[in-house]
Design a protein around this nucleic acid. Sequence first.
DNA 1: AAAATCCCCAACCGCGGGGAA
DNA 2: ATTCCCCGCGGTTGGGGATTT
Length: 240
Amino acid sequence: MGRSPCCEKAHTNKGAWTKEEDQRLVAYIKAHGEGCWRSLPKAAGLLRCGKSCRLRWINYLRPGLKRGNFTEEDDELIIKLHGLLGNKWSLIAGRLPGRTDNEIKNYWNTHIRRKLISRGLDPKTHLPIGRVPCHRQGIPMAADEAVKPNDMAEDGHSSVTSMDEERCPDLNLDLTISLHGGAPKPPAAEAATPASGPACAQLICLCYHLGLQTSEACSCQASPDLQHVLRFYRPLEGGQ
DNA sequence: AAAATCCCCAACCGCGGGGAA
DNA sequence: ATTCCCCGCGGTTGGGGATTT
């Protein structure tokens, strides 16, 4: 039982990519564009599975990738974003142009984790090591723990917003996503890009995004001025 | 200089979501 | 309504270079 394999494993290469494979992949994507990863390997003459091709392209061959050291500012941004989003590497990567989710994930696990530990902070919760998470005191916490049913019900707002402002006043956490009421979806790329600033009218509450919308946890829908627009959004002060 | 250990990161794996049939 | 397929994500692995003994 179980899911069928993503490709015919018997006739696919694994492991490190060769220069020739890279060249074939780049040439094919330049000519035909991204997408249709399943059929790409055959069309491009590669003995690789589609997933492998996609990964190679996204993480290594795609133009515009920044390779090399992260700056101190990058570090701090990643730490802030991780504190709010948790291990949502793709979302975090969306905030760091030229960086991939895989790269950030690796960098987190190899460098930033230790950095936090050396500061006496738990890399998972961002709390002082040994301390029990408690956001009500404005103490940092992991995003997984940031939105809990009771937090939402008490005052009708996501505590993430106030937490966010308390903790990262300089951080634009525009986590805009589409409505759940039949309104057209904005392009996925806009969901977490700085470009979708205050001008973006279709916003949604974070609790819904986190799957809490159907529970009592989310009271955003009760808000009279948010009948069509539910939001978790905080604009930058003075732009990006 | 050689062996052992550590560390980094590219790549793989399995799962879940969403759309099409 | 259900099943299937594809894509994308996050967790994990393992090869190989760097460092230490």
